[in-house]
Design a binder for these strands. Structure first.
Length: 371
RNA sequence: GGAGAGUUGGCUGAGCGGUCAAAAGCAGCAGACUGUAAAUCUGCCGGGCCACGCCCUACGGAGGUUCGAAUCCUCCACUCUCCA
């Protein structure tokens, strides 16, 4: 029954330094998990990804269920073998797609009827089937099937949605076989009273970790952190805490400050493909004219392959011309930046200097913009 | 030498009397992106302004017709196609 174990190694204020041990290795926390929805971190080969050194990545139940399908993934030896990845894998349950694909699904008590975004064909996902699919794919950490309500709906509607998530959490849990760890998800939107109730419900269940979901869905950043700052400390200390879908580099620093251990976000990979790069000097839009003849490395303080081997001018050239290599170089850099940031954070927490680290970091980000 | 077609904003290319500062695409510029339907999307793109409205300069050049011309007429310049 040792699905995962969590060891809290150090603490600096609310910030935590820990370790999640899985069958596919130990994960040092706080951790950022690159998103690889379709068993692929977009634009990178698995080997390129491996060289960046993440200990865990994220895949998605909904996407893999459509293509290539669970049966095939299982038959091919599970998702790790399928993509040639020996690190840990966490899958999202498909819950987020209830939000992002809202127009092509129908929610019932039993579960959710989806239309495939690929060809419109109908699919059904329930707490039981979602957990089953995740387990059969052989993931290290599965997520409970939840509903992620949009920002801007009423307190009553959020409450109703949250209660459904709670019932689904119970069902998800009873579908756990032990092969994969299972995390529960706290909902409640921006309403603190609901968040409190949701924590009480979810934390009382035997989940292997607890996530805060339903955040970064369009709400102002202040509201998001009001929720995170309020909710994170309520979570049990002996289990990993995962803030789903977050975020920007400063969000990660602020999340750790609130006591979060795990993060995931498409931002570094998507922005890389769209020409926005994160650097130690702030955000850089590599497509702007000012880099046309700039022969300096993207980030003077970065030692990734991109920064070691090519110039800003070259990166701009690749981007402007739509070269595939632009996505590769940019993704390598952004992910390196995120992973480096988490390494620095871990070190700071371990050495009890997180708060000065955070202050310096935020100051630097605000002054921003690489010149 | 003869016959015909054409010349539009950085490029390609619509428009053929007013609703045209001029379609569309490309290029250019800026901005978004937070559990990925995203190598995507949005905005700007002649100049000026006490800018959601007004002024100036604009559709090869010069004249002309008309209340009004990128659109019609004349001449000039250049380009292309076909026939000798």
């Amino acid at each position: 029954m040792s699905r995962i174990t969590f060891n809290l190694l150090a603490q600096d204020g609310a910030a935590r330094r820990g370790e999640v041990v899985t069958r596919h290795g130990a994960i040092q926390t706080p951790v950022f998990m690159p998103v690889g929805t379709l068993a692929s971190v977009k634009s990178l080969t698995t080997d390129q990804l491996r060289q960046l050194g993440p200990e865990i990545i994220l895949n998605n139940t909904y996407h893999l269920m459509l293509r290539p399908g669970v049966d095939l993934v299982e038959k091919l030896g599970g998702v790790h073998k399928f993509m040639g990845w020996d690190g840990a894998v966490l899958t999202d349950s498909g819950g987020f797609q209830l939000f992002s694909l809202a127009k092509i699904r129908k929610i019932r008590e039993e579960g959710v009827e989806f239309r495939s975004h690929i060809d419109g064909s109908p699919y059904f996902l329930s707490p039981e089937s979602s957990v089953e699919i995740q387990t059969r794919m052989g993931v290290d950490i599965a997520m409970a099937f939840d509903e992620c309500p949009p920002y801007g709906i009423s307190h009553a509607e959020v409450e109703k949605s949250m209660l459904l998530t709670h019932r689904w959490a119970k069902r998800s849990l009873s579908a756990r076989t032990g092969a994969s760890a299972l995390f529960g998800i706290v909902q409640g939107g921006i309403h603190l009273d609901l968040r409190k109730r949701s924590v009480e419900e979810i934390a009382a269940m035997d989940f292997d970790g607890i996530a805060i979901g339903g955040v970064s869905v369009g709400e102002p950043k202040e509201e998001m952190f009001e929720v995170v700052d309020y909710t994170a400390p309520l979570l049990p200390a002996d289990r990993p805490r995962y803030l789903m879908g977050v975020g920007t580099p400063e969000d990660l620093v602020n999340g750790v400050a609130a006591g979060i251990d795990m993060f995931d976000c498409v931002m570094p990979t998507r922005n890389a493909r769209n020409g926005t790069l994160f650097t130690s000097l702030g955000k850089v839009s590599i497509k702007t004219a000012k880099f046309a003849a700039d022969d300096r490395p993207l980030d003077p303080n970065c030692s990734c392959v991109t920064c070691r081997t090519v110039s800003r001018a070259y990166l701009r050239h690749l981007y402007v011309n739509g070269e595939i290599a632009a996505s590769v170089y940019n993704t390598i850099h952004n992910l390196s930046f995120y992973l480096d940031l988490m390494r620095s954070i871990r070190q700071a927490v371990a050495s009890n200097s997180f708060w000065s680290f955070r202050e310096a970091f935020l100051k630097r980000v605000v002054s921003g913009e690489a010149a």
